[in-house]
Design a protein around this nucleic acid. Structure first.
Length: 120
RNA sequence: GGAGAGGACAGGACGGUCGCCGGCUCGGAUGCAAGGGUCGCCAUACCGACCCGCAAGCAUCCGGGCGGGAGGAAAGUCCGGGCUCCGAAGGACACGGUGAUGGGCAACACCCACCGGCCGCGAGGCCAGGGAAAGUGCAACAGAAAGCAGACCGCCGCACGGGCCUGCCCGUGCGGUAAGGGUGAAACGGCGAGGUAAGAGCUCACCAGCAGGCCGGGUGACCGGCCUGGCUAGGCAAACCCCACCGGGAGCAAGGUCAAACAGGGAGCAGUGACGGUGUCCCCGCGCGCAAGCGCUGGGCCGUCCGCGGGUCGGUCCGGUCCGCUAUCGACUUCCGGGUAGACUGCUGGAGGAGUUGAGCAAUCGGCUUCCUAGAGAAAUGGCCGUCGCCUGCAUGCGCAGGAACAGAACCCGGCUUACACGUCCUCUCCAACC
RNA sequence: CGCGGGGUGGAGCAGCCCGGUAGCUCGCGAGGCUCAUAACCUCGAGGUCGCAGGUUCGAAUCCUGUCCCCGCCA
């Protein structure tokens, strides 16, 4: 039951956490999403959203953010632990919940493997 | 029934479940949190006895309950205000904006009423709607001529020459003429009569339009009438401009508050110079000029500086170090203790909504009753499912599949503009038919 | 959120203030020169001036609305 909650501690809220993820440049992507990853010291993953005006007007941007948050909430047990994910929707893609629920865990695990490789 | 005109409303409904944001409330865990009173004693403290309290509160974490959570445009950011800070800042000029009149409003470029012009058979609609008889300017091409008008053809007169069926025709020159032709977006009123060589507001009547005066109506823009004048003054001010009125700048990322410690920072006084200067001017001085006035490495005045600039290393404004420049090498003493990041605040109850009533043609304003309706912060208002209603297609008995616009609060209001699916209601106009 | 700048041939830019003719460089096409290519010379094509209204006789230009792009402050 509590596995489906989405409290503020699961979100990236500090400017320096975003900057840290961008500077590491550990990215993975598919047709829907682009993800910047960075390890954190917490026992859970965190989600950060970056939705620029290039993907659409305010209604479309809100739709993307809500659906990505919903996908994160519902797939969180399947996500790797201790990782910050900055998620950016790709220009031209259509927001779609089932696609996002498929895409987000896969990208998160690929990012986690990439971080392990690079730390060596 | 058809075709329209104006206005108002609405922006699917109900339910289940998993989440998010903030509010109220209840409970749990941990930590902090508290002792007081009376009696004994001469009395205070200590001490002893007894009684009351031991959780109200605060902090962190966790859980439950209750009720709330995008719009008519939240949009564009085009106007107007509130609010906040900045400024030594007052006036004139400059710069920007607005533009018939009266009213409404906190204010407006908004709203209402009315006036004028244009469009429509009409209901109605549109108008940046002051000034072109203040000044400067603009008008390609065409055309004879385009702004104190203008002679290409035509018409008319005179002179000369020629022809000759001799009072007619042709050519040339000079002059008159704006009635006719043709050009243009635009050619200096229309029409009739007189007049004339031909013509012309040259003169006259009427009409249109203009200026002045008077009378009547209206708060007023303006409207109606009469008289007089002179007959024409053209268009463009979303060209410069003139007139009237309005406007200081920046914006809630405004602004305010907050721990500790030092390095260090800041301010004032005195002194001394250097640098710069309000869009322009103001006071003084000097120069030029008859004067109005004009000019000035000027002064006063105001601001900044008690080093400045660059490279490099580390880093939160900053510090270390090196180099260059320079006028003074930045004294002494007193006082204050900041900013950034972060957190809290500003932050939602207001020129507020609904009903009713009074004033008013109306916009709107007043009285009474009643209601409380989002406050995020890398930024909530969402996901899934069901039932009903609407539309489209298949079908037309049931049903099945699909669709439902424009668009997302960010300090708050008043407007404007732009976008918009399925719709609902009210008032009015024209046409057709029937009673 | 606030503010500023810009949309003109295929590309990059003038013209806009002060309204009547859309011009420059490169590129493109044809011809010439050359044994041939480049360079050079000559000629030519190619533009709804982002879109929609308005003012004007007339709008790339002036005014209003709208769409898109770029940049700046925090």
């Amino acid at each position: 039951m509590t596995a489906q909650r989405f409290r503020p501690e699961y979100r990236i809220r500090r400017s320096r956490d975003f900057r840290r993820a961008y500077q590491l440049r550990a990215t993975v992507s598919d047709r829907l999403l682009l993800v910047f990853a960075h390890p954190n010291d917490l026992p859970h993953p965190r989600l950060g959203l970056s939705v620029s005006r290039k993907v659409g007007r305010a209604v479309v941007r809100n739709r993307w953010k809500r659906l990505i948050r919903e996908a994160f909430r519902l797939t969180r047990p399947r996500l790797p632990q201790g990782i910050d994910l900055v998620v950016i929707p790709r220009q031209g893609a259509e927001p779609d919940l089932s696609g996002l629920m498929d895409s987000l865990p896969r990208l998160a695990h690929r990012a986690a493997r990439k971080l392990v490789q690079e730390s060596r």
